[in-house]
Simulated assay, not measured.
Amino acid sequence: MTYCVGLMLDRGLVMMADTRTNAGIDNISTFRKMFTWSVPGERVLMLMTAGNLATTQSVVSLLDERTKAVDEREPSILAVPSMFQAARLVAETLRGVIAQPGTQGQRAEGTFNATLILGGQIKGGPVRLFLIYPEGNFIEAGGDTPFFQIGETKYGRPILVRAYDRAMSFESVVKLLLVSFDSTVKANLSVAPPFDVQLYEAGSFTLEPGLRIAANDPYYQAISAGWGEALKTALDSLPDFDLGQDHQGAHKAG
Results as ranks from 00 to 15, higher is better:
residue 3 Y to G: 05
residue 3 Y to S: 10
residue 8 M to L: 14
residue 10 D to Q: 12
residue 11 R to P: 00
residue 13 L to I: 13
residue 18 D to W: 08
residue 19 T to P: 01
residue 19 T to Q: 11
residue 23 A to H: 13
residue 25 I to G: 01
residue 27 N to H: 13
residue 31 F to G: 00
residue 31 F to A: 04
residue 33 K to L: 02
residue 37 W to E: 10
residue 41 G to M: 10
residue 45 L to R: 09
residue 46 M to S: 10
residue 49 T to M: 04
residue 56 T to W: 01
residue 60 V to S: 08
residue 61 S to N: 14
residue 63 L to Y: 05
residue 64 D to T: 08
residue 68 K to T: 09
residue 70 V to L: 11
residue 74 E to W: 05
residue 77 I to C: 11
residue 82 S to M: 05
residue 84 F to C: 05
residue 86 A to W: 09
residue 87 A to E: 05
residue 91 A to W: 02
residue 92 E to R: 15
residue 107 R to L: 12
residue 116 L to C: 07
residue 125 G to F: 12
residue 127 V to Y: 04
residue 138 F to C: 08
residue 140 E to Q: 14
residue 142 G to N: 15
residue 142 G to R: 08
residue 143 G to A: 13
residue 150 I to Y: 03
residue 154 K to Q: 15
residue 155 Y to D: 07
residue 166 R to E: 12
residue 170 F to H: 03
residue 180 S to T: 06
residue 181 F to N: 04
residue 183 S to C: 05
residue 190 S to Y: 10
residue 192 A to P: 03
residue 197 V to R: 05
residue 199 L to R: 06
residue 202 A to Q: 13
residue 206 T to R: 15
residue 207 L to C: 06
residue 214 A to I: 00
residue 224 S to Y: 02
residue 225 A to W: 01
residue 228 G to F: 02
residue 232 K to A: 15
residue 233 T to R: 13
residue 234 A to D: 11
residue 239 P to N: 05
residue 239 P to F: 01
residue 240 D to P: 14
residue 252 K to Q: 13
residue 252 K to E: 11
